[in-house]
Design a protein around this nucleic acid. Sequence first.
DNA 1: TCATGTTGAGAACGTACGTTCTCCATCGCT
DNA 2: AGCGATGGAGAACGTACGTTCTCAACATGA
Lengths: 188, 188
Amino acid sequence: MPAAITEEQTRLDREVLLDAAEHLYYEKGIQAVGMDEVRTASALPLKRIYRLYAAKEDLVVAVLRRRDERWRGQLAAHVEQVGDPRERVLAVFDWLARWFAEPGFRGCAWINAFGELAPSSEAVLAEVRSHKQAFHDQIALWVHDTGLPVAEPVYLLAEGAIVTAAITGTPAPAAHARTAAAALLTAQ
Amino acid sequence: MPAAITEEQTRLDREVLLDAAEHLYYEKGIQAVGMDEVRTASALPLKRIYRLYAAKEDLVVAVLRRRDERWRGQLAAHVEQVGDPRERVLAVFDWLARWFAEPGFRGCAWINAFGELAPSSEAVLAEVRSHKQAFHDQIALWVHDTGLPVAEPVYLLAEGAIVTAAITGTPAPAAHARTAAAALLTAQ
DNA sequence: TCATGTTGAGAACGTACGTTCTCCATCGCT
DNA sequence: AGCGATGGAGAACGTACGTTCTCAACATGA
């Protein structure tokens, strides 16, 4: 039995592959990036790529899933530093503002994937829905602690800010959404 | 000079072509629909299609532009029936609710096009931005008549409702956004 | 009626992509 | 050292798509 590949190597290769694919997909769009480009960027043999993920669709889903964990993890880490429930909800929009201002920001990877692949890939559609459901539930939990029934509008403001920041290319929607959320969180 | 094509025929062909292309693009995504499929659906010779629009990108832009006129025209027609300024703004969300519930609703054609083509087509990106700017300005005008400075949040709620309705596949976000807009429009 | 040039129908071309296959170097075991 | 299986590099394959080209059919003006 020669030249076996260890579990550890598989895990490392997966990371390298997902890093390369995620970066390319987010920058250029999923359909615009071929497997050859992913191979070049990851410096992994095509054969290995197809052993890690049997088809491009599987790779795309894996990219989205890992990004979901990181994205929501970073959001939660930022938001849950804040003690006051009302301020905690508003911190979501501060985090969005920072995200929008990052160089290379191209909008929400899941909304973009929806636009590209929802009609043709059931698996991608499911992953997009899963991410949005999880994001919604996170927000609903934080809003719940304020005791005010405004989870839905806060979530919709966040989504609206994300698409608008993407399309206009400016981070301003985060501030607008924050102001509106603050108003909704002021019991009347 | 034989078999000349009249201006009138050109206009009719354009309508037929844009009808076919818009329907296919919205249902299946732009990249997933080839020119052959557009040809079959429109029953127009490929040669004529390429005379009307020199490249697929031009056809896509034309489809988006005509849809923008129709979409915003129908929105305005519905909203401007309403006399009271506050109710007029809320009517936007009633119109969205009806749209979301239409069979075959697949979200915002412009947001989807952004996800598909923004990185690769400057012309499509410009068309998407133009549509969103116009939609924003319409809402801002209607909100202006209420005398309340809530144009941005109302717009963001509308955008958030559109994406969320698309991804979840339910029309409920329209009602949630309407309720939130009503709260913002209640001077405190 | 005949020549002319435009149109229609679709074949053809070049390219790109997802996936599989080939071939050779390499490594572990006996 | 020799054998056999495995991995690396990329060619190859089948397909699909955007765009162009071919060529027969035909309507019009002389």
